[in-house]
C-alpha cells in the first residue's frame, strides 16, 4: 500500500491509486524515448513497456541548444495512434499549461522533465490537480519527496540526460536508496530534524522511515546506453529503466532496444546480460561529465 496520510494531498484517494497503479504496471520494463511513429513502432516491437514522445532526444537538445519545449501535439497523436502501449510525453518544469494540453490530448503519463528548458525556476507543477499521472526526476531523497508531495506518481533518477554516461544515474540512485536506508535506523524523535535537513514533508519522511522505500515506483533514467548499464541500475534498486538517446543514437536501434529490454528483465542473470550484449553494434558516443560545463548540466534544473 502507498499509505501515507498526506498533509498536502490525499494519498489514499482513488485518483492517486490509479495513478500509482499505472506506474506499478510499468515495473521491470523499459521506457524508450521516441521522436516519431516509426521509432515508436520499433520500440514497441522490441518490447518497450511504454514510450516517451518528444521532439528531439536529449543528446540532440544538448548539441543544438535553444529552448526545448513540449513536443508538437501532432507528433504525440501519431505516436498514440501507432502503438498500444502507454504513451508518455514531457513538459517543462512548472509549465502546468503544457501539462493541461497533454492531459486534454489524453497521454497516459506526463514527465515534468529537466531535459526541457524550465518554465518556472521556483515552482514545479502541482500535480494533484491533474488526473493524468506524473513522473519527475530526482537526485536525492529530499527532491524525490518534494515531488511526491506535489503529486508525482513515479520517481526516476535524473542522471545526466543525453550524456550516454551512467555515472550520474548511479550517483542519484545510490544517494536516494542510501538516504532511505539511513532513515530506517533513526528514532522517531529524530525525524523532524531530518525533514528540515531534506526540505521534505514530515509525513513522507516518516513513511520512508517506516517502509524503507518510496511510496511510488522508483525508476532510473539519464545516461543508460548499454544492456549492462540497465542491469547495473536495476541491481542498485531501479524498478524500471528509461532509455533516452541510448537507443536511437546507436548504430542498430532495433537490436539495442531488444537487448536492453532483455537485460532489464534478466539483470540478475549475467549469462543472459552477456547474450544481450554480444549481438550489438556500437553504443552512442558518451560524454565525460567533467567535460560538461556547469551551466550545461541538465540535472541541476529543478530543485
Amino acid at each position: 500500500m502507498t499509505a501515507t496520510q498526506g498533509s498536502n494531498g490525499n494519498y489514499l484517494n482513488d485518483a492517486w491509486r490509479v495513478k500509482v497503479g499505472l506506474a506499478e504496471m510499468l515495473k521491470g520494463g523499459v521506457i524508450m524515448d521516441v521522436t516519431n511513429a516509426e521509432q515508436a513502432r520499433i520500440a514497441e516491437d522490441a518490447g518497450a513497456c511504454a514510450v516517451m514522445a518528444l521532439e528531439r532526444v536529449p543528446s540532440d537538445i544538448r548539441k543544438e541548444g535553444g529552448v526545448a519545449r513540449m513536443a508538437a501535439p501532432k507528433i504525440i497523436r501519431e505516436i498514440m495512434d501507432t502503438v498500444s502501449i502507454p504513451v508518455m510525453a514531457k513538459v517543462r518544469i512548472g509549465h502546468f499549461a503544457e501539462a493541461a494540453v497533454l492531459e486534454a490530448l489524453e497521454v497516459d503519463f506526463i514527465d515534468e522533465s529537466e531535459v526541457l528548458t524550465p518554465a518556472d525556476e521556483e515552482n514545479h507543477v502541482w500535480k494533484h490537480d491533474f488526473k493524468v499521472p506524473f513522473v519527475c526526476g530526482a537526485r536525492n531523497l529530499g527532491e524525490a519527496l518534494r515531488r511526491i508531495a506535489e503529486g508525482a506518481a513515479m520517481i526516476r533518477t535524473k542522471g545526466e540526460a543525453g550524456s550516454g554516461n551512467v555515472v550520474e544515474a548511479v550517483r542519484h540512485m545510490r544517494t536516494i536508496t542510501g538516504e532511505m536506508r539511513r532513515l530506517t535506523t533513526l528514532r522517531g524523535d529524530e525525524l523532524m530534524h531530518v525533514a528540515k535537513e531534506l526540505g521534505a514533508p514530515l509525513d513522507l519522511v516518516r513513511e520512508i522511515a517506516r517502509a524503507g522505500k518510496l511510496p511510488v515506483p522508483n525508476f532510473s533514467a539519464g545516461g543508460i546506453a548499454t544492456p549492462a548499464d540497465a542491469a547495473l541500475v536495476r541491481h542498485l534498486g531501479a524498478e524500471s529503466v528509461f532509455v533516452g538517446s541510448g537507443i536511437f543514437k546507436s548504430s542498430d536501434p532495433e537490436k539495442r532496444a531488444k537487448a536492453i529490454v532483455k537485460a532489464t528483465t534478466h539483470y540478475q542473470d549475467a549469462k543472459i546480460v552477456l547474450e544481450a550484449s554480444e549481438v550489438l553494434g556500437e553504443a552512442m558516443k558518451g560524454l565525460d561529465i567533467r567535460q560538461i560545463e556547469e551551466k550545461d548540466l541538465l540535472q541541476t534544473r529543478g530543485w
Binding site: D14, R17, V18, G21, L22, M25, M80, S84, P86, E103, E106, V107, D108, F109, K131, V132, P133
Partner: peptide, 30 residues
C-alpha cells in the same frame, strides 16, 4: 484491449461478488 480508453479512464469501482458478503474493491487500469 484498453477498451475503456486510455489512462484517464482508469478508475476504482466497488462491486458485489459471490466470493464474499462484502463488496469487492476493483482497480481498473487501462
Amino acid at each position: 484491449r484498453n477498451a475503456y480508453g486510455r489512462q484517464l479512464a482508469s478508475e476504482v469501482r466497488s462491486e458485489m461478488t459471490p466470493l464474499s458478503s462484502e463488496p469487492l474493491e476493483m482497480v481498473f487500469i487501462r
